[in-house]
Amino acid sequence: MADPKLHVTDQEGKRHTLVGISGWRVMEVIRDYGLPIKAECGGALECATCHVYVAPEWLEKLPEKSEEEEERLDDAFEVEDNSRLSCQILMSEALDGLEVTLAPGSEP
């Protein structure tokens, strides 16, 4: 199967389609494409600067939030029910077509 695609809407509202690699964190794919994501702790669950909103239809297909991720989201802003830290979502064939939006506070 082809590499899973990822659709990312940036803070300006522009939608980008990225090609992910299974096993990569969504945050890493977004960063690799040079889109504006701060992700300053590099996936250590220490900063909440890779905060994204996941399109509602994808929410149930994602692995559940850990307690650590929920706690770290306390340091993010404008947190919604579909808020996730993109360093905690691994790309996979099952997530081909995943749709996320970069949240305020994730810009570099």
Partner: peptide, 10 residues
């Protein structure tokens, strides 16, 4: 720096 503030245990 970052090593101590952001990820001392990473």
């Amino acid at each position: 720096g970052q090593c101590a503030e952001l990820y001392p245990e990473k």
